[in-house]
């Protein structure tokens, strides 16, 4: 299977990406991944994110890349940017973000 030509699966996460929602978000992401290994996740609606949320994004990125695709994060909300910044993960994801003054 060559996935590079696939139409990216798009999804906008709403609300919190935390330990409380991790299980259901994982299911949703897994469903998207089974359709396409190129995903574009819109994070503008994420009002809270914790380590569980960060892990989900990292694991998705890993699996996308393992399947020859990639994960693109767009429209990071302030809450997401704060956390990625704190953990120094912005460059890992490699997505263009509005640079905050660190």
């Amino acid at each position: 299977m060559d996935n590079t030509d696939q139409v990216p699966g798009k999804w906008q996460v709403e609300g919190e990406m935390t330990i409380f929602t991790a299980a259901s978000i994982k299911e949703k992401l897994a469903a998207l991944l089974s359709a396409s290994s190129r995903l574009e996740i819109d994070l503008s609606g994420v009002n809270e994110i914790d380590t569980a949320g960060v892990q989900l994004l990292l694991a998705t990125k890993k699996e996308c890349q393992a399947k020859g695709g990639d994960l693109t994060l767009v429209h990071h909300s302030i809450q997401v940017l704060d956390v990625l910044d704190l953990c120094n993960l912005t460059t890992i994801f490699g997505d263009p973000v509005v640079i905050s003054s660190n």
Binding site: A59, K62, E63
Partner: peptide, 22 residues
């Protein structure tokens, strides 16, 4: 500065979303 290691984190389908791997 914080350096994050997520080597222990598997791909999405294998991960337990409530387990910490960091």
């Amino acid at each position: 500065q914080v350096g994050t290691f997520f080597d222990r984190l598997p791909g999405l389908s294998e991960m337990d979303p409530e387990t910490c791997y960091m």
